[in-house]
Design a protein around this nucleic acid. Sequence first.
RNA 1: CGCGGGAUGGAGCAGCGGCAGCUCGCGUGGCUCAUAACCACGAGGUCAGAGGUUCGAGUCCUCUUCCCGCAACCA
Length: 458
Amino acid sequence: MSNYYVTTSIPYVNGEPHIGFAMELLEADVLARAARQRGETVIFSTGTDEHGTKIAQKADSLGITPRELVDEYSEKFRNLQKLLDISNDRFIRTTDKPHEQRAQLIWKALAKDIYKSKYVGWYDVKEEEFVPEAKADPARMEASHPQAYQKLEEENYFFRLSNYTDAIKAKIESGEFQILPETRRNEILSVLREGLDDISISRPKEKLEWGVPVPGDKKQVMYVWFEALMNYLTVLGYPEHEDFKNFWPADVQVVGKDIIRFHAAIWPGMLMSLGVPLPKTLYVHGHISVNGQKMSKSLGNGVAPQEIVDKYGTDAFRYYFLRHIPSYNDGDFSWESLEAAYNSELANELGNAVQRTAAMIMKYQNGIIGDAKIAQHDINPYEEALAACRFDRALDDVWDRVRGLNQYIEEAKPWEIAKLGDTDHLREVLAYQVGNLLAIADQLEPFMPETAFKIRTV
RNA sequence: CGCGGGAUGGAGCAGCGGCAGCUCGCGUGGCUCAUAACCACGAGGUCAGAGGUUCGAGUCCUCUUCCCGCAACCA
């Protein structure tokens, strides 16, 4: 029996969970559930990223401690998982003691590629990023600008990412480290072709207390991004725990397109320095707009996952986002299209197919089902879609089957067979319908666990 | 030349070298087991424009026009 390890990124807890991250959870959840269905042993990990300047500042502005802030927000992300029926096995917080301790072990293991140097330049507080001179927006260098950079001149630790440019590129080109979809792979290859600079990986403690201390240097804490990436290893108990030995490298890491650089450049560099294999696949999903507009707190067009679930239920939420937001592209959410999908696809096509089958069995056979075998069907398109993280395609294939069943019923006309009194034939036809529904339920299981269960038990 | 993504029937999208397709909507018909549901058929596109490669181009190359993201809280 094989092992399967899938992760989501760990969202930064300075805001409410939104439908974008909800979709990421769903995608990883489908992969995890599908792997379990195949009989694999699964670790599905998600969590929250809780250190750094922005959180310290936000807590400060609210008059609470960072600890109180992250406790409150981390809980919201946990609630999102319950809301969406997410089957994660682990939930890691970067403020968990074991994570912090193991992060320090990782730092020490990276020592050969870490050096101290003076950083002079700009720091983007909001993005928690050092901004290279070449990319900096001149307007924001003025102190009066609302999002002015901080001018920094300080001693920091650096990681020799530049050493790994070619090696990372080679792994991606060989397919050993697969990046899906291909446009994202090309994008990162072009970044690598330009070469990677060494990155600053610490901050002076006097400016930021809310971080993991650098081992052996009381004056420095780890840069939040650098430390957050380590969660994928620390959650498995790197370096000594059995889980690390059995489950790393990750089968799939699910991330959003905005953080592809961290996961396709910095993270592989860290792993190579550690002498640890790279994840097998990095799946990069797009972003979701709302009614054609970018989601934005200032526009107030955000959609709360809770609101959708209240109105349509968890499985409808899962279905809509997995099928109607393209897996390989950006997508658009609208209440209208959700409503349409809910009525026409879930209620009419699938719901009705179940309903009419069940009704005929009750009416003609007093509820007794004949010998229902799970129907054969070419499941390759479904499995290929799933293997390629094309969740939308996989569901398309299931729906072909739902439609096929409705067509079959139309052609077989079981109600006429009933009138003719050919009970054997009728039993055969109805059993075939049931067999098809059971097969549909199997395929739906990773996507809509609740619905799959209902179909089986009707 | 900041970076990136797009332009395909009324709407939303797929197709990425071999007869233009899917879903919704619209029209007509069928059926009555089922949810005013389901099934069939039909109308509707010179695939943004120009040039090129090719036996053959939404599909590959070049140029042009126009949209939309990122750079500004956010996956």
